Simulated scan of single mutants.
Amino acid sequence: MLCENYRFDDKRLPGLSPVWCGTEQCAPGFSVGFTRPYWMLHFVVSGKGTFSTGGVTYDVMPSQIFVVRPHRPHVYTADKTDPWHYIWLNFYCDTELPALLDADVITAPSLGSLFADCLDAAREEYGAREAITAGLWALFAALIRMQAAHGTRQNPYVTAAKRYIEENYAKPIRVSDIARTLNLDRCYFSTVFRRETGTSPKQYLAEVRMEHAAELLSAEGASVTSAARRAGYGDCMNFSRHFKAHFGVSPSRYREMIAKNEIDGGFPDKISERNER
């Protein structure tokens, strides 16, 4: 079974910082399910599989990219009869990314060569990290050109709602508040949002809050009480209940595991070096 796995040093650099790069011809039915504090892009070279995130499951085919966002639960599984072969790029990014990466799955046959170039760079003894950083910027530029060429546009109400949530998730906002801001009926807004994103605005708001809470606990070492408050939860017990339902462990246990370097944003019963893929 083909498998190459290259990891760069753990130092997180400002802006864009590669973490892992590799490729694998997966075994039939091979499945991965965990969270990470960084972005993960998988380009499917051949074969097929499924990718589940945010309550939606996608059938992913060759020349498609499935996008895993930081701290977002997900599962991806190779097909049992035609398992996929993919190339992956994992990275931290503190800057704004192309809008196409808001999608969970992107069809982009022209980008396969950029993933292959990054893999070739990872095999080099010197300058691999710098070359992959440049390759990621080239990939982002290509995604921006794709969006411009195909006129990819999200429903303006959904775009505005997402922006409102990102700017106000720390406040005690509700779906009715978002709809009112957009001058829309709550039921109509929820229908449009679900049709465009595959998830409800309530679930999307909860996911944004959980992702920010996990970032506060892992990157900043915030206390559970502080993370709850800064993620928009006035009740710490309610926050802990939602966090455990979302990630599978309590926020205090998650914080403890991060502090002891037992995990790298994932959970030990689901992680092995192989699972970095």
Rank of each mutant, 00 (worst) to 15 (best):
V45R: 06
L216H: 04
E167R: 15
H212D: 10
F140T: 02
V60T: 08
A131Y: 08
G33H: 02
W39D: 12
D102R: 11
G54M: 10
A134Y: 12
T133R: 12
W137P: 09
E220L: 14
F193H: 04
C118K: 04
A138R: 11
F243V: 00
P268C: 01
G135D: 06
I106G: 05
A134K: 13
P83G: 03
A259N: 04
N168A: 02
L114C: 11
E256R: 04
Q147V: 13
R174Y: 06
Y157H: 15
G232C: 03
A213Y: 00
Y164P: 01
S272Q: 06
S31R: 14
D185R: 11
H85G: 08
K270G: 07
S52G: 11
V60G: 05
S113A: 08
Y254S: 01
A245H: 02
F243D: 00
S223I: 10
R72W: 10
F239W: 04
P172N: 00
A228K: 04
A222T: 01
A149E: 14
C187A: 15
R174N: 07
H42N: 15
A149L: 13
M146P: 08
N183R: 14
K171F: 06
A121R: 05
A99N: 11
K260D: 04
H74C: 10
S252R: 00
S176Q: 13
D264C: 05
A121K: 03
A138V: 03
A99T: 14
A78M: 03
S223N: 11
Q64V: 03
M146W: 05
A116F: 08
G248R: 00
Y6I: 03
K270R: 12
Q147A: 15
A108S: 07
T50F: 01
L205N: 08
L111M: 13
A142V: 07
Y204S: 06
P62A: 06
R12M: 14
K171V: 03
T152F: 15
V208A: 09
